[in-house]
Design a protein around this nucleic acid. Sequence first.
DNA 1: GTGGTCTAGACCACG
DNA 2: GTGGTCTAGACCACC
Lengths: 139, 139, 139, 139
Amino acid sequence: MLFINKMSSKPIYEQIVDSVERNILLGVYPPGCALPSVRELSMKLGINPNTIQKSYGELTRRGVILTSPGSGCYVSENALDILKIQAQAKLQTIRQLAIELQLAGVPKGDVLATIAEVYAHPKSPPSHSETTSEGGVDT
Amino acid sequence: MLFINKMSSKPIYEQIVDSVERNILLGVYPPGCALPSVRELSMKLGINPNTIQKSYGELTRRGVILTSPGSGCYVSENALDILKIQAQAKLQTIRQLAIELQLAGVPKGDVLATIAEVYAHPKSPPSHSETTSEGGVDT
Amino acid sequence: MLFINKMSSKPIYEQIVDSVERNILLGVYPPGCALPSVRELSMKLGINPNTIQKSYGELTRRGVILTSPGSGCYVSENALDILKIQAQAKLQTIRQLAIELQLAGVPKGDVLATIAEVYAHPKSPPSHSETTSEGGVDT
Amino acid sequence: MLFINKMSSKPIYEQIVDSVERNILLGVYPPGCALPSVRELSMKLGINPNTIQKSYGELTRRGVILTSPGSGCYVSENALDILKIQAQAKLQTIRQLAIELQLAGVPKGDVLATIAEVYAHPKSPPSHSETTSEGGVDT
DNA sequence: GTGGTCTAGACCACG
DNA sequence: GTGGTCTAGACCACC
């Protein structure tokens, strides 16, 4: 279900957050769906329960999931909307990177081609593909 | 010359690296130019000399600057080439972000428009004759 | 495990880097193995944690070890390959020294004999099957 | 006469020492020959006189040159012998490097081939007659 | 507990 | 004056 790389530079709790959000977008975890329990994930991934807890806490803070104590965690009804808003922030990150690329003399066409190439491969349905390629995205 | 934000989550030494690299691309520090000394920058920015030193060490390792102990640090002759190669890595970061945006349902046009908007505002690099594949300029 | 000479002209942090790399080649630290923690080494060697940290940072940059903050540092899977590539650089150092020896009139035979003498004493690497072109062993 | 690289990582005073010693071995500065004055070299190389002075001091300490105050510096009569002894120290450096290469699994043949390749190109022995069959070597 | 960053202050070698 | 190393001690994020 969730793929975590313990050796990545990206913090594990952040990888879990990203994975869950990706699964929600992919429809694997539709709104209302119950997430795996902290204990279950902890064992399955071989990761400290505190780390899982931190991830779920972050997702709760973002409003992506709801925590009902004693019952479990569920994907919130407006999770998809929230995730789309979050995506807008990533657009700003791209914008900042584009500014740096422009400064370095990278041709506009190269950047546009990269974007076009990504969108040429539809990823919306719950199909699988090479998504994680180790990344250094900060903040 | 260099703007640093001590409150940012990005480490100070990394901000300095980025700032210096940006100034090199802007032509503020042309190849062969002497960088401000560790102590000078330290005082001017109100930052510990060790932190500046770490930044200069990283730039040296990247080959962006040459350091000659007892004399100072100088922008290397092929600094611009190295920085352009580094920029290619950022393109891959953009690629990864684009994949996430696509998954979140952000339209391809939004991303392309963001890129185009950035490239519509020329940042005046020092003397690139072959920067944009298409001679696009505003006005 | 690691032997450091505080009085050497070679920086301590560099000695640590070399020692760790040597232990990896010797199989003392096999790929995947966890390195001693920064604080542990610091105490055991009587050296400031910052200095150890600098060494581990360098090893990480070289790709010899992987570091996962909060967890520890681990020998990377392709550490041996990287170290072998680094060794090729040392060959060039030998080449330069040989040029100087030749200029000083040192006979070719003296240099070759020195090399042969070293290779006559196998240092027992972990599991190299293709190490010496000639299966020479002493008796 | 002397080639110095101000941007090298090797200290300038050390480069000067090496250059002078190389010229002595090449016969450019035979025993008894007067070296360029500190002032002259300083101007010709664009280097601080203190740095030249330090180099000459080191050469004097090694017994390679003699300083007669008010008159100048002269290559000592036994300079060649001293340089040959110094070369023996370099052989030990090669030995140490060979040990590291062996540990990294570099084949004995590779090292021997490197030595042989160097000695295959005669670099103009210290004295008399037809030396450089093929010219053009830099360092 | 782990690694990572930063500060303060000291000392050294180089130019 | 320059860069480079080291120590001491502190704080942070992560597991």
